[in-house]
């Protein structure tokens, strides 16, 4: 059966660390980084990237449009 795999790219300089993507993700891919970006915000990063299904929920709720989503089918 074909399985869907996804990947996300987060624009860490645009991220304001609101954490809305963390709660929107149904498979808990995203976590908050301890480091900060140049604006001083803790930014989001895909900690558990293997679980990503490319559902786009994180990108849709992101108020700053930081997230780009890729998705592909794997056999």
């Amino acid at each position: 059966m074909a399985k869907v795999k996804g990947a996300i790219v987060i624009d860490i300089e645009r991220c304001k660390g609101c954490e809305l993507c963390v709660v929107a993700c149904p498979v808990n891919v995203i976590s908050m980084e301890k480091k900060v970006n140049t604006k001083g915000y803790h930014f989001a990063y895909p900690e558990n990237h293997e679980a990503c299904t490319g559902c786009m929920n994180c990108a849709i709720v992101c108020p700053d449009g930081c997230i780009t989503v890729y998705r592909t089918k794997v056999e």
Binding site: K5, G6, A7, V9, G54, M56, A59, I60, G65, C66, I67, T68, V69, Y70, R71, T72
Partner: peptide, 13 residues
Amino acid sequence: EIIREANLVYKKT
């Protein structure tokens, strides 16, 4: 390998 232009599904307009 997934992060390629062909697999792009969502991007800031």
